[in-house]
Amino acid sequence: MEHTSRLERIIRIVLVALILIFFLFPIFWIFLMSFQTNEDILRIPPSPFFTPTISNYQALITGKLVSAAGTLDIPFMRNLWNSVLLSSVSVVIALILGVPAAYAFARFKFRLGEDIAFTLLSFRFAPPLLVLLPLSLYFQEIGLTDTYAGLIWVYQLIALPLILWIVRGYFEDISPDIEYAYRIGGHSWWRTFTRIAVPLAGPGIAAAGLLAFIFCWNNFVFALILASADKQPVTVGSLAFVTASGIQYGQIAAAIVLSVTPTLAIALYAQRYLVEGLSLGAVKG
């Protein structure tokens, strides 16, 4: 028995290590690249030994890209700020709209309820390119092209269905009797929603919000078509590193490190919160 369990342990460790290497090595390599010059990166064979430089980060933060062909302005920090602004405002709006809607879909049966919920979900089925063309025409017509408001509105296509469907499931898992018990004690519907239902669905709301944030952050094509340089997020802004004199791999790596950091930080923070919330759990006792 001990022998097998020991063997199992070793196999498990090896497998976990393989998986970690597979997923983490690219990130590690990008991290190394971000401290290398383009010459170091393109050297064959590649070498892990190099003189680290912070010139890539310098270029990104000052916005001056110095290349063989001359100096180029890149609004990377602005793009990063756009990403933060677009994603967080989109998620906040989607939460404000989506959480009460999810509650309604979970608790109340109303005419066409399921159809409406499914229609909202179907926004995620449609390829973005399909809606982009008509959307960009409309946006030009009503003056929403190249505005934050327009982008945030379109981002609801990404965030709202996600939040609606994840949070709905959490609300459905909460026994309605817990809310009834609170309501019959003399509390209004709204108080019950904010004091009982939302806290109990907290982990689900956090997970949905986080996921929606990441999806918004990673979006490329909406912002590419509907916004110009000063409103574009990092995903689109990174195109600037493909210059006439070649691809600036060092800056791309540094840009990736910088743009991944916020989502990574949020994910790590929320993960702790999620585990905490779920271990409280046991709504069903």
């Binding site: 009797d177 817990i178 009834y180 018990a181 609170y182 009982i196 109990l200 759990g281 046991a282 006792g285």
Partner: peptide
């Protein structure tokens, strides 16, 4: 009201 499913607030 006392509920069959107890419905205590966790």
């Amino acid at each position: 009201m006392a509920f069959e499913g107890y419905s205590l607030y966790p």
